[in-house]
Design a protein around this nucleic acid. Structure first.
Length: 801
RNA sequence: GCCCAGGUGGUGGAACGGCAGACACAGGGGACUUAAAAUCCCCUGACCUUCGGGUCGUGCGGGUUCGAAUCCCGCCCUGGGCACCA
């Protein structure tokens, strides 16, 4: 009989929806399990197969938890603000509002509802609806109240094509992540969130949160924690001093010059008269250069001696101060002590300008002519009282010694920068702040939220740096909540990543318009039990989210400080070994396959392509095989005589083995091998003389999380009521897994020479006797002395001659 | 340059100290059919073979072990992240 997936899937979609199978009672649930996946951006092109891949993998996990008895909440939403929609709307001459409504409708009704996921549509969010972004604005205000939102005039990344400010993370090797245009630096007043206040906690908690290692590693790199010391160098003949951060205080005796970043404010004050012109020119040049130019690889070192001197606190030596653009303003103190003997960059600089190079760390205690910087550990030399000390010990010893004279203190630095959250664009939540000439900057009173995004005919950005919202003059004028005088609204919108930094907090409380999240519901459902998404968000979305939750926790608004107890990064789905991309024209359209082979087949095939956490490779030919599998399963129930007979013998063993294997694999997201195991069980059932109902029902349950429609259909076909998807998950009996006889491989000197079938409990002597019967074993041991026998009962014998 | 993740048949991938290639795809042969499709059965790492079997084989080179795809050391290649971060 031919399997009609269209009719079957439509039928169960309707039944599940009408019955509310996917909508747990959020207040009454006894064993809550919050199964979260990264909500999509609803593009005009429609749902990408990569989304289906990610959602299916996450949904299987949720369905498995449900069958294991948990009350699973699996919501879905739309991350629809941002530059993408805005640019696309401008391109097609439409308004983002109507565009997004259309896209969301298409995503939800035509695509997401068809992929067989147990989404709770009663609790969806759309970040562009006022009832949602009211809370985005509210969160902004909470951050402000915590002292974590501040304004700073800063050199920011400006994309001349998108005509907006970009976060550091949105700049990939000096180009705009979205449009690939070369990014410029512009001085603008911006809103920042002080994520650096949480650098240590963000780093620390990585120790215990249960996340994919690749994601944790990416976050560690991004935070860039490094331990060292702050050293203080007096400036010769002046009151001021220069502070530097170093991870190698043990090399301080080798500091032969100092370097300040060109932007360092102290440069102006201490530059010698006769150097002013040269220094001024160098600083102007550095300012004009793009990040690309400044950081290009193997670029020759440049710099200028500013004619001032520092006193090395370790040996009292008078050393010159330079400025050079290889020292970055914005990391550490923006100044360094240069130790050319033990730092590659300082070495190159010293060579270029003929500055002295003094070896102070020696790998063997001897002196060397250095061809290159020695950056390893060793013994301290030319270091006064520290001579002979191992450099690892010296780090601490030097710091402590200088600390006594208040010239040093231990210090931890981070690479992480504060989060620029303002955007000079239209399509985002207006930043809920008011600028008053009398009162300064203050938040919009919470009862006046949301600050609605004004309807603008012309919302295109221009090159002035003046945001589109500034043109809505009536909207901008506002009464100051502080003094009642005339004031102006902030005309920036907030970064998209703020919308997605708390959406999961909102899901359980959707519909409550008087609170961001209900304390009861939140205590019950959060933190999220499992979060699945792409690792490309490791440094952006996932980092910002952790930060926002920590800040809300410290504000007393959340009872936990980590949002996701467990996070797993899924892999990338490729096509014929290559990355899918529109330009290559090798993008798989999931709609085609949902229509032609159905959701079950698509889900099975996607998950069969490879290990979910590593990714997989899609081949069009492959999916036909999966369709055949679904049909074999269907025909097993429809055509075969399914009988009420006991499950016995080999089939019984196979069934228990499959339950064990599939259960373990699903829990570890190893869906490809779980599917293979169900295939083996199906083959075992077909090989058996009869088709026992219990074996078939077990098989259906094992596949149910992956192929929800056909298993539900066949479950009822076998006369069952209710739904297969509420479980219970079948149990296996360990004792059924052992067989009476086993095939034991016989090796001679580690090479396989044959197998013997013996009782499971056979002793070494019995196995040896059987092994001697095998001709190929005989020929290998004939006339040789048996030196040793490795025997693992029931598993293996290795004869060493 | 540094840090991760990988490299296994024609292909996707299994196995993660103990029979390499589970499960599939593709290919070949057969059954059924007037024929084809569908379905079902068999074969399918390479080389040699007296058809019993033998030799080689998991990116490359070493090592540990009775035994290594798996552990260790040194390379090469692919993908991802960070990168003048002191």
């Amino acid at each position: 009989m031919r399997y009609d997936h269209r009719a079957v899937e439509a039928k169960w979609r309707q039944v599940w929806e009408e019955r509310g199978d996917h909508e747990p009672d959020l207040d009454a649930a006894e064993d809550p399990f919050f199964n979260l996946m990264m909500f999509p951006y609803p593009s005009a092109e429609g749902l990408h197969v990569g989304n289906v891949y990610a959602f299916t993998g996450a949904d299987i996990y949720g369905r498995f938890q449900r069958m294991c008895g948990r009350d699973v909440f699996e919501p879905m939403g739309f991350d629809a603000f941002g530059i993408h929609s805005e640019n696309f709307a401008i391109k097609i001459g439409d308004h983002p509002k109507t565009l997004i409504r259309r896209n969301v409708e298409n995503f939800r009704e035509n695509q997401l509802k068809r992929i067989g996921a147990r989404f709770d549509w009663a609790h969806q969010v759309n970040t562009t609806e006022p009832e949602y972004y009211k809370w985005t604005q509210w969160v902004f205000i909470q951050m402000f109240r915590q002292g974590l939102a501040f304004r700073k005039k800063a050199a920011v990344n400006w994309c001349p094509d998108c005509m907006t400010v970009l976060a550091d993370e949105q700049v990939i090797s000096d180009r705009c992540e979205r449009c690939d245009e070369l990014v410029e630096q512009r001085e603008l007043e911006q809103w920042f969130f002080r994520i650096t206040d949480y650098a240590e906690k963000l780093h620390q908690n990585l120790e215990w949160i249960d996340w994919s290692d690749i994601t944790k590693t990416a976050q560690r790199n991004w935070i860039g924690r490094s331990e060292g010391a702050l050293l203080r160098f007096e400036i010769d003949g002046r009151e001021e001093h220069l502070e530097v951060f170093t991870t190698r205080p043990d090399t301080v005796f080798g500091a032969t010059y100092m370097v300040m970043a060109p932007e360092h404010p102290l440069v102006d004050e201490i530059t010698a008269e006769d150097k002013r012109q040269e220094v001024g020119e160098y600083r102007a040049k550095a300012r004009a250069a793009t990040q690309e130019e400044r950081t290009a690889e193997d670029r020759p070192k440049t710099g200028v001696d500013i004619g001032a001197y520092c006193i090395n606190p370790a040996n009292g030596e008078r050393i010159p101060i330079w400025i050079a653009d290889y020292v970055l303003w914005g990391y550490g103190t923006g100044a360094i002590m240069a130790v050319p003997a033990h730092d590659e960059r300082d070495f190159a600089f010293a060579k270029t300008f003929g500055l002295p190079i003094r070896e102070v760390i020696s790998p063997d205690g001897e002196e060397h002519d250095l061809e290159e910087a020695y950056i390893g550990q060793g013994v301290m030399i030319h270091s006064g009282q520290f001579d002979g000390m191992p450099s690892e010990v010296g780090k601490k010893a030097v710091t402590e010694h200088l600390a006594e004279k208040e010239l040093a203190e231990p210090r931890v630095e981070y690479r992480l920068r504060d989060w620029c959250v303002s955007r000079q664009r239209y399509w985002g939540p207006p930043i809920p702040m008011i600028h008053c000439g009398q009162c300064g900057v203050l938040p919009v009173p919470e009862k006046e939220l949301p600050v609605l995004l004004p309807e603008l005919e012309d919302f295109t950005p221009d090159d002035s740096g003046r945001p589109p919202l500034a043109r809505a003059e009536d909207w901008v004028k506002v009464t100051c909540p502080g003094c009642g005088g005339d004031a102006r609204r902030d005309t920036d919108v907030s970064d998209n990543f703020l919308c997605s930094a708390f959406y999961f907090l909102r899901y359980p409380s959707v519909g409550m318009d008087d609170r961001a999240w209900d304390p009861e519901r939140t205590r019950k459902w959060l933190p999220v039990d499992m979060y699945i998404g792409g690792n490309e968000h490791a440094c952006l979305h996932l980092m910002y989210t952790r930060f926002v939750v920590m800040a809300l926790h410290d504000a007393g608004l959340l009872p936990f400080e980590e949002p996701f107890v467990k996070f797993r990064a899924h892999g990338l789905l490729t096509k014929d070994g290559a990355k899918m991309s529109k330009s290559k024209g090798n993008v798989v359209n999931p709609d085609d396959f949902l229509e032609s082979t159905g959701a079950d087949t698509l889900r099975l095939y996607l998950m069969f392509c490879g290990p979910f956490q590593q990714g997989g490779d899609w081949r069009d030919e492959g999916i036909a095989g999966m369709r055949r599998y679904v049909e074999r399963l269907y025909n097993l129930v429809m055509d075969d005589e399914v009988v009420d007979a006991p499950v016995e013998g080999e089939l019984e063993r196979a069934m228990h083995a499959a339950i064990k294997k599939v259960g373990e694999d699903l829990a570890e997201l190893r869906y490809n091998t779980a599917i293979a195991a169900t295939m083996e069980l199906l083959n075992a059932i077909r090989d058996a003389d009869t088709t026992p109902k219990q074996a078939v029902e077990t098989l259906l349950k094992l596949i149910a999380p992956i192929a929800p429609f056909v298993t539900e259909e066949l479950w009822h076909e076998l006369g069952n009521e209710g739904t297969i998807h509420d479980g219970p998950w079948p149990e296996y009996d360990e004792s059924k897994l052992v067989t009476d006889t086993v095939e034991i491989p016989i090796q001679v000197k580690g090479k396989l020479r044959g197998t013997v079938a013996v009782p499971t409990e056979a002793t070494e002597d019995e196995v040896m006797a059987a092994a001697r019967e095998i001709p190929s074993v005989q020929s290998q041991i004939e006339g040789k002395e048996i030196r040793k026998v490795i025997f693992l009962p029931g598993k293996l014998m290795n004869i060493v001659v």
